[in-house]
Nucleic acid binder design. Structure first.
Lengths: 148, 148
DNA sequence: ACTAAAAATTAGAATTATTCTTGCCTGTGG
DNA sequence: CCACAGGCAAGAATAATTCTAATTTTTAGT
């Protein structure tokens, strides 16, 4: 317990770190987030659960779900869905889509070419305000590439 | 699957109608398919179930699921997913994406502008062979338009 | 430090969309 | 008529996720 000054006027303690989007960083959230940043292979909640147990053996699956939701709400992580498969989680915040390789089962991030905007490509309903985009590609990669 | 005739000569019975992609058309399948073609508002399996009961009161939900799956397998209908919501079904076979209006809850088909190909826009992994694309937009439409 | 209030965690129950199982029915060909 | 294949219905089973209730941890005030 660090004893903070009991001084009356005083500056307030550090504002919530912008980096975490105002999310209180508990052990569990730190570990889950760190793990997502470290292994960027788009794990499911189950995957995260199994991995995080190495460092936090007592964590519960519910906490993993709660944590992932909190990270998503606070904009630190994106939730990605393929058909009806379990959701996957991705710490890449840049605008991007996902290529799902049928052969290896791996998912690759796919960025947009410079200078193109989706509006250039799609016949949007007039007046539409787009707040979110999701692009999913399915296909195959030659072996050498999918081993990447 | 389809049993090809083992007969030596003989004409074959009428070829499977191309229109149905080789799917045997029962009452249930006809109704479900007709309904999808008629009300193109991207219904869920539940929606279809409720609607089709008007004409086939004894149909079961399992049959609706089976039928929708069969229609999808045979390429007559597309299955569309938004996040983890129940799947929706869409008889529009042309390449298109979906715009999900938060306000009205309605889903609008979004076609590609002429002459653009996704490969022009995305930084695909080298060698990638794309077999399927899914584009989902989320946002809002001004009132007049969403009433359309 | 002491305490009350707020937020997070946990374990397990509940929910929900979907799939599976089992038995019955129907249409077709021999 | 009989056998067989495919379809259908009803309900059970499954799987991902969410909810509930109880406990623990953190925060803030004094």
């Amino acid at each position: 317990m660090v004893d903070l000054s009991t001084d009356s006027d005083s500056e307030f303690s550090a504002e919530i770190p912008a980096e975490t989007g105002g999310l209180r960083m508990t052990k569990q959230r730190q570990e889950v987030y760190r793990l997502l940043l470290e292994q960027r292979d788009h794990p499911t909640a189950q995957d995260v659960f199994m991995r995080v147990k190495d460092t936090l053996p007592h964590i519960s699956l519910a906490t993993v779900y709660n944590t992932l939701e909190a990270l998503v709400q606070h904009g630190l992580v994106r939730q990605v869905n393929f058909d009806r498969e379990p959701s996957r989680f991705c710490p890449n915040l840049a605008d991007h889509g996902h290529f799902h390789d049928k052969v290896s089962g791996k998912i690759h991030d796919v960025t947009f070419k410079q200078g193109v905007s989706l509006a250039d490509v799609l016949e949007l309903p007039p007046g539409a305000v787009v707040t979110g985009i999701e692009i999913t590609l399915r296909g195959e990669l030659p072996m050498e590439e999918s081993a990447k």
